[in-house]
Amino acid sequence: MKRLVLFDLDGTLTDSSEGILASLSYMMNKLSLKIPDDTILASFIGPPLRDSLSTIYGMDNTEVEIAEKVYREYFAERGIHRLAVYPGIENLLNDLSSNYLLAIATSKPEIYAKQIVEQIGLTHYFTGIFGADLAGRRSKKADVIAYALNKLNTKEAVMVGDRKFDILGAKANELSSIGVLYGFGSQQELVNAKADIVVESVDELTDAIRKLIK
């Protein structure tokens, strides 16, 4: 049986920063929220939106639900299209697909993740695309990974992602992990989270995956 490789989406397969930041700007302006500096704005990319809203703005559950709804007004219509596939990703997936099962595990709502992967023409590489639910009951990366493993009926995989949430989510599910530096996380973040391997480029991923799963 082929071994499983789980990929994060934002910052790992796609540079989605333009669409996410535009959607955040729309939400903040519509709700008259103070727009934070660029560093804090960038921190929104990766973790569940509700967690960032709660941490940065101190929102309660009701306020979070309102803000998420406004964010999705823009994202679902416009933000979802403002992204690019990282160079080399399609070649990587093509090379890996002959020896591994490939799937996506993302904190982005699953309905949007499936639309994105379809619009960038990569759906056929993946055995499954797994993400958060819109109600927020499954939003933590560890929960999404567990959901993916359950659906695919396996407990063995390697997780590839650009943020500490990917690495910590993998550890919570007793998986090996690879951190990528071309996305939105820093080397220090990935090292502190104890990624098994950290790579700088897409070109290094095949060898890193082969080191962790034969």
Score class of each variant (00 low, 15 high):
N150T: 10
T106F: 07
Q115G: 00
Y125R: 02
G128V: 11
T39H: 05
I120N: 03
F126H: 09
L134F: 11
K214Q: 06
V202K: 13
D143Q: 14
E18H: 13
L181T: 05
S52L: 06
I89M: 04
P47F: 05
T123H: 04
L33T: 02
E77S: 13
V117F: 02
K194M: 09
A142Q: 08
D15G: 02
I89Y: 03
E200I: 10
V198N: 01
Y26F: 15
G136L: 03
E204A: 15
A105R: 13
G58K: 02
R82K: 15
T106C: 08
Y86L: 04
G179D: 07
G58H: 03
N94Q: 11
E90K: 14
K214N: 10
S201Y: 09
S25T: 14
S25A: 15
Q188T: 10
E68F: 00
I35Y: 00
L212I: 06
I45Y: 09
G169K: 11
Q187T: 09
A157K: 07
Y86E: 04
T206P: 00
E63A: 11
T55C: 00
M159Q: 13
Y112N: 08
L175E: 00
S17N: 01
I116M: 06
Y86W: 04
F184Y: 15
I120E: 02
I213H: 03
N153G: 00
K214C: 03
T55M: 05
I209N: 07
N91F: 05
K194N: 15
D51C: 00
I209Y: 06
L41M: 14
L6R: 08
S201N: 14
K164V: 03
D203H: 14
P36I: 07
L13A: 12
G88F: 09
L212K: 08
A142H: 02
N61F: 00
L152R: 01
T39K: 12
Y182Q: 04
P109N: 07
K30F: 05
S54L: 00
P48R: 05
E65L: 01
A148D: 06
D143F: 09
R78V: 13
Y100D: 10
L24W: 10
V202P: 07
S52R: 03
K194V: 03
F165Q: 08
F165V: 05
F75V: 10
A103H: 01
D196A: 12
E90V: 12
N91K: 14
T39R: 06
F75Q: 04
R3K: 15
D15P: 01
E174T: 12
F184E: 08
Y125E: 06
A148W: 01
L101K: 12
S107I: 00
L33M: 15
T62K: 07
K171R: 15
K164A: 13
L9Y: 06
S177G: 08
V180I: 14
A84S: 14
L175F: 03
R163E: 12
E156Y: 03
S177M: 11
N91W: 00
E68R: 11
M159R: 09
E156I: 08
Y57R: 09
Y26M: 13
A84M: 10
R163S: 10
M27T: 13
A170H: 03
L4S: 00
S32E: 14
K214D: 11
